[in-house]
Amino acid sequence: MTTNTRERADLLESLARHRYFLTHTVRGLTDEQARRRSSPPSELTPGGLIKHVSATEAQWADFVVRGPEAMAMTPESYQAHLDAFVLGEGETLADVLDGYAAVAARTDELVRTVDLDAEQPLPEAPWFEPGAAWSARRVFLHVIAETAQHAGHADFLREAIDGQKTMG
C-alpha cells in the first residue's frame, strides 16, 4: 500500500468514524424529538445539527472542486446557511440522514480521487487569513474536525432528550 493510499484510507476512516458518532446520536429519535431544543435554551437541535453538518461538508467538497466561488456568500446562500440549522416542519430526520449519506458518498469519492496537494485560494472572510490557500487534504481534515465537534454537540443534545449517550 503506498503512502498516498494509506493516507486516503486514514482520511476515509476518520470521516466515517466521526460521521457515525454524529448520526448515532439521532438513532431512534422521532422527528419531533429531532426538532427539540435542549435545556438550557439553545437554538441547536439534533436534526438541525445533522442538516448543518451535511450542508457544510457539501460546501467544502464543492470548494475542493470549484474553488472559492463555492463559498461565495449571497443573500440567498446566507439564508440557506441559516436554514441549514433547522429541521423544518416539512422535513424528516430520515430525509436529512439520506441527504447526508449522499453528501458523504460524494466527499469520500473526492478523498479517493483528487490530488490531495491541490490548493484552492480561500475566499476573503474575517475568519480566513488574507491570501491563504488550503489543499484538498487540509479541507478534508477540516471536515473531520467539524464533524467531530458537532458530534459532541449532538451527543449533548441527545442526552438532554432521553439520557442516551453515544460513548458512555
Rank of each mutant, 00 (worst) to 15 (best):
V64Q: 00
R27N: 13
E159C: 09
P40R: 00
R36K: 14
V139E: 06
E91I: 07
R112S: 12
V65S: 05
V96R: 10
G168T: 14
N4D: 15
T5Y: 01
M73K: 14
A34G: 14
P75L: 11
G67K: 07
P75Q: 12
A55I: 01
G99L: 03
A72S: 09
S39M: 05
V111R: 04
E109T: 14
A70G: 05
A154D: 06
R8M: 10
K165R: 15
L49P: 02
R6D: 06
T30Q: 11
G168R: 13
G152F: 08
R66T: 06
D162C: 14
A102E: 14
E89F: 00
V53N: 02
G47R: 08
E57K: 04
L49Q: 01
V26P: 08
T23L: 15
T25E: 07
P126K: 12
A34S: 15
G67D: 07
R36C: 02
L11K: 04
V26I: 15
F63R: 02
P41T: 11
P68G: 06
G90L: 01
Q33R: 11
L97G: 09
A125K: 04
A132W: 03
E159L: 04
A136N: 12
A133T: 14
L49N: 12
F85D: 00
H24F: 13
A84Y: 03
D83K: 10
V96G: 01
G88Y: 04
P40F: 01
W134S: 15
E89I: 05
A136I: 10
Y20M: 05
R19L: 06
R8N: 09
T2H: 10
Y100I: 02
G168Q: 08
T3A: 11
L15K: 01
A102M: 03
A55C: 03
T56D: 02
R6V: 04
R138K: 13
R35E: 08
S42M: 05
M1C: 06
A55F: 09
L97M: 13
N4E: 14
V139M: 05
R6T: 13
Y78M: 14
S77K: 11
Q59A: 15
L82H: 03
V53P: 02
A154L: 11
L22N: 07
G90P: 07
M167N: 08
E7G: 03
Y100G: 01
S54R: 13
E129F: 05
A145P: 00
V103P: 10
Y78C: 00
T3G: 12
A58H: 11
G99I: 08
H150Q: 11
E129G: 04
A102D: 05
T113G: 08
E124C: 03
H150M: 03
G99C: 10
L22I: 13
V53E: 02
P126I: 12
H18L: 03
L12T: 08
D162F: 09
P46V: 12
H18A: 04
Q79C: 04
D117Y: 04
P46M: 06
T25Y: 00
F156M: 05
L110D: 09
T113H: 04
A34P: 12
A145V: 02
H24L: 14
H153D: 12
R27D: 14
Y20N: 10
Y78S: 07
A151K: 08
